[in-house]
């Protein structure tokens, strides 16, 4: 294991994980410039702390953890949707599941950007990193119930922004289904 670790070098890390780290950083920061900055910070830290990596197979997770922590430490406060406005919306699921290419990437990122950081991080860990609610709770050091609550509300917000037109049409047709 130790020998494997020493064989890893930063150029190799970049070649293998740059795209994933950049994608993760972009989803968190919401801007190309900030994502590139965050990605550079991640690999600069990795360059210094490569010796702390215990398992080669955990490399990507390690890099994304650095990105997450760095984002939470340094991200600038924007004007997100106040957390209190995020309600659990049960009517945000489109009747027809869209194909991945039909999901508007720009609108997706706009919806993510509107979320408060603590909701955004949970959402990105869930979708991008496919972490379970238990793992997210462990990663962030928050109760599992809090993660489930934030996740459900963040997902509802995302769907409402992505599929707003369809919701409006559905509500006009079937007003009694809404809560």
């Amino acid at each position: 294991m130790s020998a494997d670790r020493h064989r890893m070098d930063v150029a190799q890390l970049v070649a293998e994980h740059h795209r994933a780290v950049y994608g993760f950083a972009y989803r968190l920061t919401g801007s190309v410039h900030d994502a590139e900055d965050l990605t550079q910070q991640v690999f600069l830290v990795a360059q210094q702390k490569l010796g702390q990596l215990r398992k080669i197979e955990s490399t990507r997770s390690w890099l994304l953890t650095i990105a997450r922590n760095h984002f939470l430490k340094t991200c600038q406060k924007r004007q997100p949707t106040p957390a209190a406005n995020l309600k659990l919306d049960v009517d945000t699921i489109p009747s027809q599941t869209p194909k991945v290419e039909e999901i508007d990437r720009e609108r997706l990122q706009e919806a993510i950007n509107q979320l408060p950081e603590e909701f955004r991080v949970v959402l990105v860990l869930y979708y991008f990193q496919q972490r379970s609610y238990r793992e997210i709770a462990e990663d962030l050091g928050v109760p599992m119930g809090t993660v489930m609550s934030r996740l459900a509300r963040a997902k509802g917000h995302l769907r409402s922004k992505l599929f707003a037109a369809e919701h409006a049409a559905a509500k006009r047709q079937q007003p009694s289904v809404a809560k």
Partner: peptide
Amino acid sequence: LDAQLTAAFRDV
């Protein structure tokens, strides 16, 4: 829907 959103999230 989440399967599609997961793919969209990773497509950067």
